[in-house]
Simulated assay, not measured.
Amino acid sequence: MNRARAAGPAVVALGGGHGLSATLSALRLMSDRLTAVVTVADDGGSSGRLRSEFGVLPPGDLRMALTALSDDSDWGRTWSDVLQHRFHSSGTLDKHAVGNLLILAVWEQLGDTVAGLDLMGQLLRARGRVLPMAAVPLAIEADVAELVPSGGPGVARTRVVRGQSAVAVAQGRIEQIRLTPADPPACPEAVAAIDAADWIVLGPGSWYTSVLPHLLVPELAAALHRTSARRCVTLNLSAETHGETDGMSLTEHLQVLHQHAPGLHIDAVIADPRAVDDVEPLIEAATELGARLLLRQVRTGDGTPHHDPLRLAAAYRDVFDDFLGDVGTRAR
């Protein structure tokens, strides 16, 4: 193991899907002391089918986090590709990811969710640990405000949307989200990792279905509030043109975070300048959370809305080293 990497900070990254994978791909360049705490509310696709049929945690986001941490060797890359492979057929295996099935098999063999994920991490020689945020599968429920076509200008009604896959594409403005069950047991190992961390990283990713749910698991939220770790929020690179955050600015993303966890102190917020329409409101929203804003180019050079691992890692390094002003200027 690389001594410099092993000496890095203990970082817990919270999220799910492609957003968490982007975070982990950057953080793994800085430390092996990584823990991914992954949302377990997915109810669509391969994960949803396995969850429904076997009553297990949805494995898809856990699989993606594992592959993001897989060893950068022929062994690690090969097994990562195997886990990400999807079947295409006219039968029941259609669109199932191999990794989802393998994780399910390991869980059935060991009878222990965390032990199974740790074993998968050993197979991938993962540079860190992957844990679920809760010990039971969760459902997301959202209050969505939508305009009433026949009600005149500005007339809206609120409807309840249930299920992560439905909330993710809900048309209208999400006002609040809830979890079912409302008081789920947190994964104890995830709580312990947060208590022992140097840094907590939230985002990027689907704000209502991947980032905010962590704040709604009571034991996890309590750990996030009491930990001595510092906290960093990574904002998305572009606004969604449809779905759960349609039309929301980055400033509104921070305001929604504050709404769902009003007592949570944030130390730093990372944003790409090209994603910021008006910097002053964003600075104000960050300040409201107790944070300083770090503007860094973290997207890929081709201009697509994807995080570049090296650039994002450099931004995290600036945050962790307190260089939150201009490059080379220490914040305090």
Rank of each mutant, 00 (worst) to 15 (best):
A41P: 02
L83K: 01
P58W: 05
T39F: 01
A6K: 10
V40C: 04
A22K: 07
G8A: 07
R127Q: 15
T23E: 13
D61E: 05
M64D: 14
G128S: 10
V40K: 01
G91L: 04
G15A: 03
V37M: 02
G99I: 07
S25E: 14
T35Y: 02
W75R: 12
T35Q: 02
A126G: 00
V56H: 13
L83G: 03
D61Y: 06
T67V: 15
G76D: 08
L24W: 08
S89P: 06
G111W: 04
P59I: 07
G48K: 11
G128Y: 01
S21K: 08
Q84W: 01
L57W: 02
M120N: 09
H96K: 12
V56A: 14
R86S: 08
G76S: 08
R28P: 08
S47A: 08
A105G: 14
L50K: 12
R125S: 07
R127L: 10
G17F: 03
R127C: 13
L102D: 07
L117C: 02
L24K: 06
V38I: 11
L110V: 12
E53A: 13
G17A: 05
T78C: 08
P59W: 03
D94M: 03
P58C: 01
L101A: 00
G76C: 04
V40A: 11
I103W: 04
T39D: 09
A68D: 06
N2I: 10
S73I: 02
V56F: 13
T92P: 13
P59R: 07
W107H: 12
Q109K: 14
H96Y: 12
D61K: 00
A4R: 15
A7I: 04
R63V: 02
S47H: 08
A41S: 14
R51Y: 10
V12D: 04
D94I: 02
T39H: 00
K95N: 15
H96M: 05
A36K: 00
R49I: 01
L14I: 02
D94F: 05
L101E: 09
G128Q: 00
H85T: 14
A22D: 04
D42M: 00
A6L: 13
S25W: 03
G16K: 07
S89K: 11
L20M: 07
A115G: 13
D118H: 12
S73A: 05
G55M: 09
L69K: 08
S31C: 10
G8Y: 10
N2W: 03
R28G: 12
D94Q: 06
R129F: 02
L34R: 00
F87N: 06
T23S: 15
V106Y: 04
R63H: 08
R86G: 09
D42E: 10
Q122V: 12
G116R: 01
A10F: 10
N2D: 15
D81C: 07
V12I: 02
Q122P: 00
L102G: 06
L57S: 01
G17I: 06
L123P: 00
L66E: 00
L93F: 14
T78A: 14
D81Y: 06
G19E: 12
A13F: 11
D43S: 00
